[in-house]
């Protein structure tokens, strides 16, 4: 389960909850610090899973290149024990889920394969 549990769909389903939680979410994301290293949230997904590897292959060449660049820039900053200059921080509107949909798709495929492998067939 590379993606882990999430309550986001439930929160987003309710207007009131969304309006309460959104400021906290922004506050939390900024506090987490990855944006200061120029990373996106999906760069934090643990990639040592088969599913995530397959999902990574489904990125467009441009997305793959950009991801590698962000990683490299962040590790360089880490070596320097300093965050990036402020203009290179990830802006909230840039912090989109570019990998999660692919991981979800792959998980769905796995689930379907498991279903077909164990399906019980009866003639109508």
């Amino acid at each position: 389960m590379p993606l882990g549990l999430t309550l986001a769909p439930r929160v987003l389903a309710s207007k009131t909850l969304t309006s309460w939680v959104t400021p906290i979410a922004h506050w939390y994301a900024n506090l987490a610090g990855y944006r200061k290293y120029g990373l996106k949230y999906d760069d934090l997904i643990i990639e040592e899973y088969e599913d995530v590897q397959r999902a990574l292959h489904r990125l467009t060449p441009r997305e793959q290149y950009d991801r590698a660049y962000r990683m490299k820039r962040a590790s360089h900053a880490s070596v320097l024990h300093n965050v990036l200059p402020k203009e290179e921080w990830t802006k909230p509107q840039e912090d989109v889920r570019f990998l999660t949909p692919h991981v979800k798709e792959v998980e769905k495929e796995d689930k379907e394969r498991a279903m077909w492998d164990t399906v019980f067939v009866s003639r109508k």
Binding site: E109, E112, R113, W116, V119, V121
Partner: peptide
């Protein structure tokens, strides 16, 4: 249906 679904269902 997915590609896998087509394969498995046709098999059945």
């Amino acid at each position: 249906r997915t590609a896998l679904g087509t394969v498995r269902e046709s098999e059945i």
